[in-house]
Design a protein around this nucleic acid. Structure first.
Length: 208
DNA sequence: AATGGGACCAACCGCGGGAAC
DNA sequence: AGTTCCCGCGGTTGGTCCCAT
């Protein structure tokens, strides 16, 4: 299968790296006016020197108005672990059950926090039990859900829609350990939020 | 006060599937 | 029926920030 992404023809001069505020504005304005989709065309039409892929990623992971940024709540954390135990690294699938969260964010969260933590625990188990240490992926699927009969007493008061879709009987006891080291404020808002961006966009004249 | 290490986040890359031509 | 293009997904890398020494 030779799938050669022909990007934007031969124009070359494709920008990479971090998006500037100006590029964000262009993309937001363009999508607000014309809608998204057909990303390669969009990128060209909007005058962005980015690949369609890059535009799509930027939009979906960051600029979309409904994207929810900020700390993962303990509830979300639990949900992520449960869903990951069921589906493994199907991040997009997991993300669908976490409204406003992107697969990229969940993936990052998993890798940087949960998996690391589990590795530590796995390490301990390896030291004592002698399990395979390179079971990186396997560990994901197995260790999360198995043999952890802990009637965890967290406040499941506002579990969102995902809980209705999937309501597991129990989840790992070590969630206690997981939730402890993480800050649990709902949102930091220290990033210049989409509100800012969208209001800027409006100030800018909403397109042409 | 400076340096090093670790953690986290954003973005890019490659691959595979599906749709359109 | 075959080829090309676009979309979406998962994995990986690079950059930045924060904390500890």
């Amino acid at each position: 299968m030779d799938k050669r992404p022909c990007d934007s023809g031969g124009d070359a001069e494709v920008r990479k790296g971090p998006w500037t505020m100006e590029e964000d504005m262009i993309l937001i304005n363009y999508i607000a006016t014309h809608g998204d989709g057909v990303w390669n065309t969009l990128a060209r039409s909007a005058g962005l020197k980015r690949t369609g892929k890059s535009c799509r990623l930027r939009w979906l992971n960051y600029l979309r108005p409904d994207v929810r940024r900020g700390n993962i709540t303990p509830e979300e954390q639990v949900l992520i672990m449960e869903l990951h135990a069921m589906w493994g690294n199907r991040w997009s699938k997991i993300a669908k059950h976490l409204p406003g969260r992107t697969d990229n964010e969940i993936k990052n969260y998993w890798r940087t926090r949960i998996q690391k933590h589990m590795n530590k625990q796995g390490d301990h188990q390896t030291l004592s039990g002698g399990q395979s240490s390179e079971a990186d992926h396997n560990m994901d699927q197995a260790s999360t859900s198995q043999a952890m009969p802990g009637p965890h007493d967290a406040d499941h008061q506002h579990r969102d829609a995902a809980d209705q879709i999937y309501s597991p009987p129990s989840y790992p006891e070590n969630l206690d350990t997981f939730s402890a080291p993480f800050p649990t404020e709902s949102s930091n808002d220290n990033v210049w939020s989409m509100d800012d961006l969208w209001s800027l966009q409006l100030l800018n004249g909403d397109g042409d």
